[in-house]
């Protein structure tokens, strides 16, 4: 396989990273809302949050992407396929991230919160200064896994016509008739990206040097 072909794959991988990073960031914001809903005292908000998580975790991302890809134009939103793709990915990862956040916030030992309460901190101060930073540390490994999951899942947006890494490999394989090398190379690029993300995650964890809880 020539360097030229490989370079085309690397170029396409930029879109893969961009789409995934965008989806994870937007998904994080949605996840905060969904998680707040699930932990709310309001029954409607709680039900809505749970339904959101259940639906987006309970259906294949491929089906979600196709549904959104056809749904948006049918309700009058003619958006580029990249936007449909990022919307689908963001909603899906939001469901997973919301569940991770809920687990993390729930896993903060209640004694640490009682200690904060006993010093006279308000509920908001306790959340911001104690519960949130500890939950963040607890959930960091799961959030990194979710980011890697999303990078891999981004390959599915090839079906709605976004020319990212997998679709580029597919197109090149069809025109050069060298599927073995092209798909192996694409796999290698995904692997390298994911290793980098995993290392970044480990580095971040090591910087939070306050050890076990």
């Amino acid at each position: 396989m020539s360097w030229k072909l490989f370079w085309l794959l690397v170029e396409a991988a930029r879109l893969t990273v961009l789409l995934s990073a965008g989806a994870i960031a937007i998904g994080f914001l949605i996840a905060c809302l969904v998680c707040a809903g699930m932990l709310s005292h309001n029954r409607v908000a709680r039900g809505a949050g749970r339904l959101f998580v259940s639906f987006f975790r309970g259906t294949p991302l491929l089906v979600q992407l196709l549904l959104i890809y056809y749904l948006l134009p049918s309700i009058g939103l003619d958006v580029p396929s990249e936007v449909a793709a990022i919307t689908g990915m963001a909603l899906c990862t939001a469901a997973y991230q919301a569940e991770i956040m809920r687990g993390g916030l729930g896993a903060v030992p209640s004694g640490l919160l009682e200690a904060a309460e006993m010093t006279g901190m308000s509920a908001a101060q306790t959340f911001r200064r104690i519960r949130l930073p500890i939950a963040f540390k607890l959930t960091l490994p799961a959030l990194v896994s979710e980011a890697i999951m999303m990078l891999k899942s981004s390959s599915l947006v090839s079906v709605v016509g976004v020319i990212e890494l997998t679709r580029m490999a597919q197109d090149l394989a069809a025109s050069t008739y060298r599927p073995l090398e092209l798909y192996a190379a694409a796999g290698l690029i995904y692997l390298v990206i994911n290793i980098v993300v995993a290392l970044l995650g480990t580095g971040l964890e090591a910087r939070l040097r306050w050890g076990r809880i």
Binding site: G111, I134, I213
Partner: peptide, 10 residues
């Protein structure tokens, strides 16, 4: 407290 309950991130 019995379990000290020091905040681990401080």
């Amino acid at each position: 407290f019995q379990q000290f309950n020091l905040w681990p991130h401080m």
